[in-house]
Structure formats: structure tokens, C-alpha cells
């Protein structure tokens, strides 16, 4: 399990720049991010080195922000490895709300952030497949 910071953003010029500047000034380092957007608004999802601090700072600055529990797993960075995990989850009927991925870890692994409806069942499924979770500390320190 890992803490993800989610921020509500209006579709207006400069909003994303503002969030990242606020975090930068507070010495919060972004590890991964994704943006979900509609025509009116966006949701910025962040993995950072210090989620509690990021949450506090953003709230102080008046952003609508929440902390969400997500699953972070490491997969071998080679063709087909994400597919086989997703196929397994489909077999187990685990519904994925969203996911995003990033590379660049030192061991040549890919890090995948999952948000699923049923976290416990997802974890069991990952365990059965021998997929490595990354613990919070090493995730924030990546």
C-alpha cells in the first residue's frame, strides 16, 4: 500500500504550474504523476517523497486535495509482463479504477500504481503471482 496525493484542478491555464511550484518550494519531490481530465476539470495524482507534507502544504494553499491508498508493484521491464498481470486480475474479476506506470528505477523494473475497488483481493492476487510489492519507504525514496 502506498499513499497517493490527488488534487482537483480546474481546466485553466497555470493551475498545474501552480501546484508543482507550491510542492517545489516546499522541497517535495514528485516520484510519479498522472492526470485524468475531462473537458471541465482534471485530477492530478501524485506519488511524492513526503505525502503527509504534500497534503498539508496543498491544503494550506487552498487546493482540494485527498490522500488515497493505492498499490504499488514492481514488474520486470519486458514485453508482456503488464499484460499477464492484467489478465490474471481479469480472471479474478478485480476491477481496476485506474493505473499508471513509470520507469527509471535502478534495477530496470517498471513501477505500476494501481487503484482497485477491492484492495485486499487485489493484494492476494498479486501475492499468488509472486509479484513484488514495493514498501512505502522505498517507494518514496526511489
Amino acid at each position: 500500500m502506498a499513499k497517493q496525493i490527488s488534487v482537483f484542478l480546474e481546466n485553466k491555464a497555470g493551475r498545474l504550474a501552480h501546484v508543482t511550484r507550491v510542492l517545489g518550494d516546499a522541497q517535495v519531490n514528485i516520484r510519479a504523476l498522472s492526470i485524468a481530465d475531462t473537458s471541465d476539470f482534471g485530477i492530478l495524482r501524485l506519488i511524492v517523497n513526503d505525502p503527509d507534507k504534500a497534503y498539508r502544504i496543498l491544503k494550506e494553499q487552498g487546493f482540494t486535495v485527498s490522500q488515497t491508498e493505492v498499490i504499488a508493484v514492481l514488474l520486470p521491464d519486458r514485453p508482456g509482463s503488464l499484460a499477464s498481470v492484467l489478465e490474471r486480475m481479469a480472471e479474478e474479476n478485480i476491477n481496476i479504477e485506474y493505473l499508471y506506470a513509470f520507469l527509471g528505477t535502478k534495477d530496470g523494473d517498471a513501477l505500476i500504481i494501481f487503484k482497485v475497488e477491492d484492495m485486499e483481493r487485489a493484494k492476494e492476487a498479486f501475492d499468488k503471482q509472486g509479484i513484488r510489492f514495493i514498501d512505502e519507504k522505498s517507494l518514496y525514496e526511489l
Partner: peptide
């Protein structure tokens, strides 16, 4: 606020 687009 929810971090899921669907809910918003």
C-alpha cells in the same frame, strides 16, 4: 472530492 473522474 474524489480522485476518480467517474465519481466527480
Amino acid at each position: 472530492f474524489s480522485d476518480e473522474v467517474r465519481r466527480l
